[in-house]
């Protein structure tokens, strides 16, 4: 597939028509993360309109979107930018051009889940800080939470965690199968 075809398939999957957008900026104007983004939601739509898949996949915008849906809700043409962003993240992951910190977090999170079945925040944050080389992040709150017994060392493991891990494997396989199709 050419980049142009790939972009079109992402748009189709997200049910977004790039030509619906007339660049009014109501999305970026209300986006809570706009200050930190390179393109913002309007910019992502602009990239789609001029056929620049590379800019979309390489942007910080797709990794900084919080999925709050304020943009879709206010869009006069109901353009579902978060859906396109979601598809763009999958495509970026397929090409191995994800954003480092997001990758680390998501992998730690899912591994954590596979082992315990529930999220263990201490292990999650600890491992993440270690792997993302941010040893000091949120550490200030740690003594308080330990002292008050809000977090502990012992993880909660669900009974069916083996079955859950298998199910998660099936889900990931399903995605790979879809890709081959």
């Amino acid at each position: 597939m050419t980049d142009h075809e790939t972009l079109q398939s992402l748009l189709d999957k997200a049910d977004v028509r790039q030509y619906d957008c007339y660049q009014c900026g109501k999305c970026s104007g209300g986006c809570p993360m706009a200050d930190a983004m390179d393109f913002g939601p309007r910019g992502i739509m602009r990239c789609a309109q001029v056929g620049s898949l590379g800019r979309i996949l390489g942007s910080s915008t797709i990794w900084l979107c919080t999925g709050c849906y304020a943009c879709v809700d206010r869009c006069p043409h109901d353009v579902n930018v978060p859906a396109l962003i979601e598809e763009a993240r999958y495509e970026a992951a397929r090409r191995g051009i994800g954003r480092h910190d997001s990758d680390v977090l998501n992998k730690v999170f899912v591994t954590n889940l596979k082992i315990f079945g529930r999220s263990h925040e201490m292990i999650l944050a600890g491992l993440y800080n270690l792997l993302a080389l941010k040893p000091a992040q949120d550490v200030a709150a740690l003594p308080h939470m330990l002292a008050k017994g809000m977090i502990g060392i012992k993880p909660n493991v669900i009974e069916g965690n083996d079955e859950l891990a298998e199910m998660m494997q099936r889900a990931c396989d399903w995605d790979k199968l879809e890709e081959k199709k």
Binding site: E86, V110, L113, G117, R118, A171, C172, W174
Partner: peptide, 18 residues
């Protein structure tokens, strides 16, 4: 009974199926 984590906010970023 034996509920599991819903995956927010990482699972759906990695995989739609998951």
């Amino acid at each position: 009974k034996d509920w599991n984590c819903c995956g927010a906010t990482s699972a759906h970023v990695l995989s739609e199926a998951l």
